[in-house]
Design a protein around this nucleic acid. Sequence first.
DNA 1: AGCGTAATACGAGAGTTATCGTACGAGTCT
DNA 2: AGACTCGTACGATAACTCTCGTATTACGCT
Lengths: 124, 124
Amino acid sequence: MTPAVPATSSRALPHPPREEIRLEAVLHALSDPLRLRIVRELAADGDELTCSQFVLPVTKSTSTHHFRVLREAGVIRQVYRGTAKMNGLRRDDLDGLFPGLLDALLAAAERQAARLGTTGRTGP
Amino acid sequence: MTPAVPATSSRALPHPPREEIRLEAVLHALSDPLRLRIVRELAADGDELTCSQFVLPVTKSTSTHHFRVLREAGVIRQVYRGTAKMNGLRRDDLDGLFPGLLDALLAAAERQAARLGTTGRTGP
DNA sequence: AGCGTAATACGAGAGTTATCGTACGAGTCT
DNA sequence: AGACTCGTACGATAACTCTCGTATTACGCT
């Protein structure tokens, strides 16, 4: 029988608790262009995106790697739902730890993208 | 003859112009604990610190390396004055490119240092 | 000129990262 | 059950980073 709402799978993914999120790790995670792009897209399009909705210029393995880096740094939250894996920004935790930081970073990325004439987004 | 104000030496150090400063490079530069510490100290103590005024738990070579990473990312400005090298935050350029970012980053670092019970400063 | 100090350059080592390819596991649909 | 899709795991490799030690350059002072 098919549940109306596909329950989150029992497969658990390790996330650092809020207290263990380190600023350096967050900055390192966001210092990669691909990962910054993922985070920008996540912030713009909402919190319920599967990995495959991102059109990234790398293979699936590499993609998985980057998502894991973001998760282990405490930047995103990942949850299985059926065969898909939903990705969401950990806005609450990041804002709690570093008020204003995430917005400043997103604004900075937006500004740079506008200045360089490239959206940094995955496409139309 | 000794000039009253020791003129900045002719030795020039390569700095990226403001337009070439990239957010990713800045984040990468600040993702190292030692470099974040340097920047915090620079922000707190003013803009006229020599390299040797920082008491860092690494050798001079390594220190030089970190200062160069910061300079090449566009985070700091370095100028020779006699035998010393003065270091200063590029606040104007960073604020111009990414308004509010530097302050948010410094505030985040301050918060984390307070939370972890370590100042991240070099000590008395 | 000669000495001392501040910082660099260069080379080398260990560790980390980004990327890929292939093989595998979990879940859904017919 | 079988096939298909989404994502992971495991190597492997190349590039980069942090660290150091030693040799060197630039500057100020005696």
